[in-house]
Amino acid sequence: MREEDGEIIKDFMYVMRRAPHGTIYTYEGLEMVLISAAFDQDISIAFIDDGVYSLLKDQDTEDLQIKGFVKTFKALDGYDVEKLYVDRQSLEERGLSEDDLIVDVEVLESAEIGKLMAKQDVVIHN
């Protein structure tokens, strides 16, 4: 937490730990991230466990008539949400690599993400 021009700026980490589409948590979690981006806080997203599936290329929900949100992950940059951390172990366990992901991310060891997590003022799991 710090202050800039009298405004409080906190470190927020949103944790995405669930697969997309099977439940609404990732979708509504993403809405939470986008709204909070307007508050000029220090925001990061950590993709852990099944959360890494949210970032897979070639997702197409059209046949299910579910509104897709993969494009929104690509647009996060425009909202100044640039700190996207992906857990290397979660990727590897699923037979995935960075090349399978739709956006540029930082692939980190669990211990490194753990250290970042420990510094947060607010952690919200979606």
Partner: peptide, 15 residues
């Protein structure tokens, strides 16, 4: 679920 095993992977000592 994997909450416990994941948490252990990310937790810091003394937490």
């Amino acid at each position: 679920g994997d909450s416990l095993t994941s948490c252990i992977r990310f937790i810091q000592a003394d937490d």
